[in-house]
């Protein structure tokens, strides 16, 4: 089973890197980029076969290590390994 975890900054948390990317895009002539937020993407290959068990383990992984919930949100997506 494949897991994809998106870790993003919470609303209201300043993201200077996103801001720098936004400014750089503007300087390159890409108009109309209203805002940019930068985050992390973590991919995992899991031995689990039961999706709900996998999801609850991933939830725990995110809370214990992968995300800092003071400033970050996480979103877990599961798919079958092809």
């Amino acid at each position: 089973m494949k897991a994809t975890i998106y870790i993003t900054l919470k609303n209201g948390v300043l993201d200077p890197q996103g801001k720098a990317i936004e400014n750089a895009l503007g300087q390159l002539g890409f108009d109309g980029v209203n805002s940019v937020r930068q985050g992390k993407l973590i991919e995992m290959d899991l031995a689990d076969t039961d999706a709900s068990a996998a999801e609850s383990r991933l939830q725990e992984m995110c809370e214990k290590l992968l995300a800092n919930t003071v400033i970050e949100n996480f979103d877990i997506r599961l798919s079958d390994t092809e």
Binding site: V13, L14, P16, Q17, N68, V70, I71
Partner: peptide, 17 residues
């Protein structure tokens, strides 16, 4: 200390990168 929960909050990237 913030990551292990002994102190609150977090140290983020410096404002000016």
């Amino acid at each position: 200390l913030t990551e292990c929960g002994l102190l609150p909050g977090v140290l983020m990237r410096n404002r000016d990168l």
